[in-house]
Amino acid sequence: TEEVEKIVRELQKRGVSQEEIQRILKRNGIDPRDVEHVVRRLR
């Protein structure tokens, strides 16, 4: 989703690792598959 993408991009800008990003998003109830998808697209 748009929202997830924004969050991921923001965290990446701050130098947060992929694993940490995924952990944060999972904690916020976001589907890990969505996270994977977004992270892969932004690489």
Rank of each mutant, 00 (worst) to 15 (best):
T1Y: 13
T1V: 12
E2V: 09
E2R: 11
E2K: 11
E2A: 12
E2C: 15
E2G: 10
E2L: 11
E3S: 09
E3C: 14
E3I: 11
E3N: 11
E3Y: 12
E3M: 10
E3L: 12
V4N: 02
V4E: 01
V4S: 02
V4L: 14
E5Q: 04
E5M: 11
E5N: 04
E5T: 06
K6N: 07
K6M: 08
K6S: 08
K6H: 07
K6Y: 07
K6R: 12
I7N: 02
I7R: 05
I7W: 10
I7C: 14
I7H: 04
I7M: 13
I7E: 03
I7K: 04
I7P: 00
V8Y: 11
R9W: 04
R9A: 06
R9P: 00
R9E: 04
R9T: 05
R9D: 04
R9K: 07
R9L: 07
R9F: 03
R9G: 03
E10H: 07
E10Q: 09
E10W: 06
E10V: 05
E10S: 07
E10I: 08
L11I: 02
L11G: 00
L11T: 00
L11Q: 01
L11W: 02
Q12V: 14
Q12L: 15
Q12M: 15
Q12W: 15
Q12N: 08
Q12Y: 15
K13A: 11
K13V: 07
K13Y: 06
K13Q: 10
K13L: 09
R14A: 11
R14W: 07
R14Y: 06
R14M: 10
G15M: 04
G15I: 01
G15F: 03
G15H: 07
G15K: 04
V16I: 11
V16T: 06
S17H: 06
S17Q: 05
S17F: 02
S17V: 03
S17I: 02
Q18C: 15
Q18T: 14
Q18G: 08
Q18I: 15
Q18P: 12
E20D: 10
E20V: 07
E20M: 09
E20P: 00
E20Q: 07
E20R: 04
I21T: 01
I21D: 00
I21L: 08
Q22C: 15
Q22W: 11
Q22N: 09
Q22F: 14
Q22M: 14
Q22R: 13
R23Q: 11
R23Y: 05
R23C: 14
I24W: 06
I24H: 07
I24K: 02
I24E: 09
I24L: 09
I24M: 07
L25A: 09
L25R: 02
K26A: 13
K26L: 15
K26S: 13
K26N: 09
K26F: 11
K26G: 11
K26E: 14
R27P: 04
R27T: 11
R27A: 13
R27K: 12
R27I: 11
R27E: 14
N28R: 13
N28M: 14
N28P: 03
N28G: 07
N28D: 08
G29S: 03
G29L: 03
G29M: 03
I30W: 13
I30N: 02
I30Y: 14
I30Q: 02
I30K: 01
I30G: 01
I30H: 08
I30S: 02
D31G: 03
D31T: 04
D31M: 03
D31C: 10
D31H: 05
P32V: 06
P32Q: 04
P32F: 06
P32I: 07
P32W: 08
P32D: 07
R33A: 11
R33L: 09
R33P: 02
D34C: 15
D34E: 12
V35T: 02
V35S: 02
V35L: 07
V35Y: 12
V35N: 01
V35E: 01
E36I: 06
E36K: 04
E36Y: 02
E36N: 04
E36D: 08
H37M: 13
H37R: 14
H37G: 10
V38M: 06
V38F: 02
V38G: 01
V38D: 02
V38I: 14
V39L: 15
V39I: 15
V39P: 00
R41G: 05
R41L: 07
R41W: 03
R41F: 04
R41E: 12
R41Q: 07
L42N: 13
L42K: 12
L42R: 12
L42V: 14
L42S: 13
R43Q: 15
R43C: 15
R43G: 15
R43K: 11
R43L: 15
